[in-house]
Every structure is written in structure tokens, then in C-alpha cells.
Amino acid sequence: MINYISSIIIPLMIVLIILYGIYEKQKVFDLFIQGATEGITIVAKLFPTLLGIFLAIGLLRNSGVLELILTIIEPIINLFNIPKEIMPLALLRPISGSASLGIATDIMKQYGPDSLIGMIVSTIMGATETTIYTIAVYTSIVGIKKIRFVLIAALIADVVGMILAVVLCRLVSNGFC
């Protein structure tokens, strides 16, 4: 069931969007081309960022520094039953979108996208946002510095999202649902 829902949702959404476009008399193919062309710019801008991130992450991992840091913080994260392999992502996710994408890809490449670690990493990427960046963008547009409880509440949400990602992925990979 869970697999069926996961595989039907995307084709279904594509059909719905196209049908809705036709219903409202839009030139759907022209719009598609326009959007896809804009996509080229997005990817082109993403490339240099990812290159830089991959360089830094690759060095961190191959030098052994990453392993060292993970060994140090392992006792703390064991309390939450979170696999230590995902910690680099958990720490950088709220700070930088492209850095976390680079790290997530790096982790999935090492452990395989369909492994438990790969699943957790995918879920964290899909379920959380670049919290600190988002707060910065939305507060700076109105020039407000007193953000009250926003950072705390948003980080609580992130932690809950990450713990849920671990729990739910364990359930799915154990064959529940």
C-alpha cells in the first residue's frame, strides 16, 4: 500500500496539473518549455556551489576529521537513538541549503540511497528547511531584529522533524505500514 501511494502520487499530480492547465485554456507546452528553460539557470547556479561544498566535505571525510568529530559526539547522540552517520547533515541542515544537499548526497553515495541511513537522510532533506536562512530572509525584508521566540520554535520543529525521520524510516524499513 505504502509503495503504491508513493509511486502513484507523482504521475497523478502531473496529469492533474496538465488537465487543469488545459481546462483553463493555457498553452501548456509553451509554459512547460518556459519553466524548463528557467530550470537551466537554477542548475547552472547550483553547480559552483555544489562544487565548493563537495570539495570541503570530501576533504573533511577523507582526512579523517569527520570521523574524529563523530566519535567525540557519539555518546550524546546515542541518547536520541540517532545514527551518527547522519549527524553532519543534522548539524548543517538549518544553516545552508546547498551545503546540506551536498552532504546528503555524499552520505547517500557512501551508504546507498535505499539503505536505512540513505532513507533517513532523504527524509530529513525532504521534511526540513534551511531554517536560519529562511528566518533571515523574512525578517530582513521588514527590517526587524527582535525575532522573539521564532528561532527557538523553528529549531524545536527541526529537531522533532529529524527524530521523526529516524523513527518513521526505521518503521518503513522494518516492513511496517
Binding site: 509503495n3 507523482i10 532523504s122 520543529a157 522533524g161 518503513v172
Partner: peptide, 28 residues
């Protein structure tokens, strides 16, 4: 990303994602 890394089921984690993201929003 999952597709590019050769995942057999690139959309498998959709339901955990919905669960985690809704849970996170409610907590927030």
C-alpha cells in the same frame, strides 16, 4: 538525487517525509 545515485525506489521515503514534515510543523 536518489535517482542519480541509482535508487531502486526513489519515491519510497515520501510517506516518512510527510509524517516528519507535518510532525515538525505541528511541533513548531
Amino acid at each position: 538525487v536518489r535517482t542519480s545515485l541509482g535508487s531502486a525506489e526513489p519515491t519510497k521515503m515520501l510517506i516518512p517525509i510527510w509524517g516528519a514534515t507535518i510532525g515538525a510543523a505541528v511541533a513548531g
